[in-house]
Write a protein that binds this DNA or RNA. Structure first.
Length: 264
DNA sequence: ATGTCGACATATTGTCGA
């Protein structure tokens, strides 16, 4: 069983490349993030013609997650237990955003997640990110069940170690590398999950994200922030894992590359 | 040069988010 995760940065803008990638990579399950569309606008029919069912949690302009599967989808859950919302400065109330969807595909329990970015360590979005990660841990603890393999896949917006960014000296005042963010990952590991570390295919570190700006991809100024956090049953079944950096090449690419995991 | 993208309202350019 082949399971992948990909921050697609708008499924509308990326649909031709997504259809092409599905045809060549042939994942059984694909977790998507930043679909940037509502469930009503999701291209379920075109994906269905390739044999994929869809489960979608999206509202429109920002965020949005989904799972595609050609091995069935059941037990769909939209949102985390106790999931916090975000309140922009000009808004009257905080709103819960579409950032997590849970599904069961062929007996494997999966969550596709898009962790809040955090923006800057001083920003309210950073506190939101940490609270959101707390709700993710709560949900993981609730759902962990030794009877079925389990994994959380997606854009965590956290580099687990200093080696997971292209130059740590460039991140002294930045989010994505702070101790509280990494503590949240450690809490997931303490709950029983492991970081499934992929092969890079090129260069040493398997970066998954390169900013569109400043020629970051050609210079390999990347970050490993798209992660597969799996329980023992899932992790022990992994026979291969890699970052498909080919999908980051050329015009019309997402700024993230897919992570592909093979289960034996 | 925050140098690239994507979505969308304020709409053929500006704004926000990443």
């Amino acid at each position: 069983m082949r399971i992948a995760t990909w921050n697609i940065n708008s499924i509308g803008a990326r649909l031709p490349r997504l259809l092409d990638w599905l045809g060549t990579a042939e994942p059984d399950v694909l977790c998507l993030q930043e679909i940037k569309c509502s469930e009503a606008d999701f291209p379920a029919d075109e994906l269905g013609r390739l044999g994929y069912e869809s489960a979608v949690h999206g509202t429109g302009r920002w965020n949005g997650v989904a799972v595609l599967s050609r091995v069935g989808i059941e037990g769909v859950r939209r949102g985390l237990s106790g999931e916090p919302g975000f309140q922009p400065e000009d808004a009257m109330i905080e709103a819960v955003e579409p950032r997590a969807i849970g599904v069961t595909c062929n007996g494997v329990r999966l969550w596709s997640v898009y962790v809040p970015n955090g923006r800057t360590v001083e920003h309210a979005h950073y506190e939101y990110k940490l609270r959101w990660l707390g709700a993710l841990r709560t949900t993981v603890v609730e759902e962990l069940d030794s009877a079925r393999p389990f994994a959380v896949l997606g854009d965590f917006n956290i580099a687990p170690t200093d080696a997971d960014v292209w130059d740590i000296s460039q991140f002294t005042e930045s989010t994505h590398v702070t101790a509280p963010e990494r503590d949240a990952l450690a809490a997931l590991r303490e709950a029983g999950l492991r970081d499934v570390y992929p092969r890079a295919l090129k260069y040493e570190v398997p970066f998954t994200y390169w900013d569109y700006r400043q020629l970051c991809f050609p210079k390999n100024r990347g970050m490993r922030i798209d992660l597969v956090y799996a329980d023992a049953a899932f992790a022990d079944a992994v026979t291969d894992a890699f970052v498909d950096r080919e999908a980051r090449k050329g015009t019309g690419a997402s700024d993230h590359a897919p992570v592909v995991v093979e289960l034996g």
